[in-house]
Nucleic acid binder design. Sequence first.
DNA 1: ACAAAACAGTGAACCGGTTAACTTTTTGGT
DNA 2: ACCAAAAAGTTAACCGGTTCACTGTTTTGT
Lengths: 340, 340
Amino acid sequence: MATMRDVAKLAGVSLATVSFAINNTKPVAPATLERVREAMDTLDYRPNAIARALASKRTRIIALLFPMEDHSLSGTALKFFTAAAEAASELGYNLILWPGDNGAEHIDRVVSNGLIDGVILMEVHLDDERVVRLRELGVPFTLIGRTRELSGISYVDVNFEGAVIDALARFEALGHRSIGIVFDDDGDPGTSDYGPVARTRDTYLERMRAIGATPGIFSCAESSSAGRALVPRILAEMPDVTALLLINEHASPGIVSALAAHGRPVPEAVSVLVVGASVDIVSAADPELTVYESPSRELGRRGVRDLIQRLENPNLEPAAALVDCRYVDVNSIAPARPRA
Amino acid sequence: MATMRDVAKLAGVSLATVSFAINNTKPVAPATLERVREAMDTLDYRPNAIARALASKRTRIIALLFPMEDHSLSGTALKFFTAAAEAASELGYNLILWPGDNGAEHIDRVVSNGLIDGVILMEVHLDDERVVRLRELGVPFTLIGRTRELSGISYVDVNFEGAVIDALARFEALGHRSIGIVFDDDGDPGTSDYGPVARTRDTYLERMRAIGATPGIFSCAESSSAGRALVPRILAEMPDVTALLLINEHASPGIVSALAAHGRPVPEAVSVLVVGASVDIVSAADPELTVYESPSRELGRRGVRDLIQRLENPNLEPAAALVDCRYVDVNSIAPARPRA
DNA sequence: ACAAAACAGTGAACCGGTTAACTTTTTGGT
DNA sequence: ACCAAAAAGTTAACCGGTTCACTGTTTTGT
């Protein structure tokens, strides 16, 4: 493999000049530039990323930190990963995948060996010790999600609240008043401090209060069978339910089929909307369900872009982006018909 | 951040001794070792991965190459990714995620900058130009999947044939003779050279010939609705079908519900087995389906382990591992009952 | 026509480790 | 005791780039 030294020799210039020519760090005369280019071509020269990193103290590697005790690491996560890796690649960066427990020591291990320029943090909690540690260490980072305290923090998050508000408005417009909500199981939805759950729950409760309806909050594991098993509980606690807002993508198909089995077909008897899922997964329900699709790709791209931009220009403003879900309508809601 | 130089000074030894102490590359007297350890502790020293990589010409980074024009990059892929990253992490390596088109130039870009010690290649085709290129370049690699020509190549693959043989045997034992098979759409299953498809198809055809049954090969896109849409075609071409082998996980729920809608409930009228899917996704079908679950985690771990072992000991034998699917039985098959 | 400024290019230190070759000290056999 | 061999350490070159301070040459303004 040819080195810069070889190129310099062949082009009849100094090492430094080659470096300047490559990075155009300093102006180089057109003729010289041409000679260097030719030399690089004939030698099939590729700059060595490691040497470059050592000398410049910038590795152009960013880490994607995600927890292994995943919940919601589902269909959307994969899209997120690939979109993030693509975006990084387009900008000349590399994305390292870093699974791990949550926790501050984990951060230390990732960062301390100097391999990484910055971090993308997934599955952020409202109070997240990893964020604290990253700040202490002075490592640039961008959140996917939001902490409670956001001053000076760069984040890209899904606009769950917006989707919930929109969904509830649609239900209400169709005359629904008895509207239940279904979360996944990790962290009691009553107390969870996982951002999307907490915010969605609050938005829901507030709206229910506003229209004077009794809220019905449920949760089950992230699986279709858990969804099926949950339905009797829902019908017992909320016998007059006419609409369900699902925040649990994997459970959705099971919920729908169990509703039908209990004589409450969707959408005739119960209207259903899903928030923050991937269409791939939810379309397994029969009938298919209208979804506020999680903008995973967008999230991945935006997160990575923001981080890299700020790496290259540290005094840039932190990002504060809320990305809307896409409403994918397949008519799984209908006017409320009170049960005979 | 403390450097080795600092440690050496504090411990009163030379740079080299510190290096030997850290990597135990050369014996160091116990007393000296202790002093070095202490110095490292008090300085909170972490070796710099980049400098180490430059000097030792080993980055301890491996790349996971996966195509973006995915098919089957589905529920199983995510598990695969995280298992691979975990395994790498446990062995002190880092996993870079590298999406891209297929193609040999893609390989060049990944490898040429010296950032990477080895490559894990996903979604391997029977004749894969990337494999050729990797060999030319002399880059260590491990396949997830298998090429046609395997001499000297390290691979870890799912034992699809085994699963298909087992599944067909179960069908036959229950008296089924009219057995259809459903692939996903990428690459006509009649001619595809994507390994799993090609091998599965061949195994199926061979077995059908053996029992003197007429084969029925179908395919549709990787979605539940495509599955639903496919059912009428299946029933038209194979009106007497009593068993279906599905190689298309996302389509499975749709196929099941459409079968029911056409008066052929599963498993009473049609027995169904799914090969190479993830339980998460297929369990969305109602009733749930018996699955030969794709051993994605195992695949990820084994692939990474093999690659790293061979990086550290280049004259190790290449891996040649076929990993069995796990049979997850939920009774979606029943004795054949010829249609009235 | 001449000093000042702008432009091209070079040399060498440096990033933070690894490792081969060499020196010094210790050990052991006779 | 004495010498050869083993053990423990050290020195310095090297990995392949980046970048700062500097030199020599050309351009510009007046």
